[in-house]
Design a binder for these strands. Structure first.
Lengths: 189, 189
DNA sequence: CGCGACGTTGATTTGCCTCAACGATTGTGG
DNA sequence: CCACAATCGTTGAGGCAAATCAACGTCGCG
């Protein structure tokens, strides 16, 4: 089972423990373009992607969707600020492809960690890794121009670049679709 | 004791537990301008600021110092990518003021979490909070122009803006000292 | 087949950087 | 306690990366 394989990358877990853990989660199938979370609502859930791809975006004051994050298989996603404070969010989470996710509520996640120390350990490692990844991303903002950032990203995650539409990728990289197009076609020179 | 007060914001800890925890850490006094970590070295330590202020920076390909992060009282700091993989870092960590810090090595931190589940919980919460904060920061990058970002930051952390020299603040905010100066003096119009 | 979503191209504009020069302030040695 | 240098902040001229705006081509889908 996929989720067990994922957990085992971080902790040792036997079938008995797994049977205890699973009921805390709910499995959800989300068709492409459907929203899992919407701005203005309470942020109830933390989502884990089993299959497919999600994106998180907000709508800026000019009415443009700004995609700040993608999640593919084996990644967690939510608006963490809102999730942890159980407040309302400014983000949308939307399926980029037909997807299958696990969801867990804040209180369930907290309770699970209390009852199962290995899950406390699991989430500690997940957050630690995610934090380190975000720090890297912030460093890239200082290091690269937008053009360089695209080339870097394209070199590291070529499969992902193929996988999502270009205008979403552009938004995620913090540039306009027009400029991304220009960059890509510049290569020929 | 300061560190105990800090821990108690996240977990319940009695004196006996504290006595067990403390030996894992080393106390260090760092005079202003001194480096705790240097690019090219192995990243051995995670630093917790008891007093004073640290900054983390790297040197870009033009030779300019880019400050990516500050840490004041009750914040942790290290190059997490390098720390977790016990690799060499590209960052410097330098005292902005005369400072007092606690340090812990990667292996000690891991061992502490194994031996004391409450510390696993503590670090889980710390990473979780830090991760949420970084996600906010990334959202700001999409939301604000550099000028707006400065005003936002200045409105939220006026004391901190006073506390550090302007050219470090400029670097941290991702703009040049010249442009920050221009922004600040524009207000009069 | 026609419409809407997506990608491209080019002209123009702008936010912010670069470079250079100049005050102000600080600290340091004589 | 004063000169002198170094560090830091300011100002302005000029330039560039990337955005904006508008128009058009293309493809997939109902």
């Amino acid at each position: 089972m996929k989720f067990k394989n994922h957990l085992e990358k971080f902790i040792d877990v036997n079938d008995e423990q797994l049977a205890f853990i699973l009921p805390y989660f709910k499995r959800l199938e989300v068709p492409k373009k459907q929203n899992l979370m919407e701005a203005g609502q309470r942020c109830h859930s933390h989502y884990f992607v089993l299959e497919g791809c999600l994106r998180k975006f907000f709508i800026d004051d000019k009415g443009v969707e700004q995609t700040t994050e993608f999640a593919i298989e084996n990644w967690w996603m939510t608006d963490h600020r809102a999730f942890e404070n159980e407040e309302s969010t400014d983000f949308y989470i939307q399926a980029v492809e037909n997807s299958v996710v696990l969801t867990i509520s804040y209180s369930s996640q907290e309770q699970l960690m209390v009852e199962m120390p290995i899950m406390e350990r699991y989430f500690r490692k997940v957050y630690q890794r995610a934090f380190a990844a975000l720090q890297m991303k912030i460093k890239y903002n200082f290091t690269y121009s937008k053009e360089e950032y695209f080339h870097h990203f394209n070199a590291h995650y070529p499969a992902f670049v193929q996988r999502v539409p270009q205008y979403l990728l552009a938004s995620f990289l913090g540039l306009t679709p027009e400029y991304l197009s220009e960059i890509r076609n510049k290569k020929r020179s």
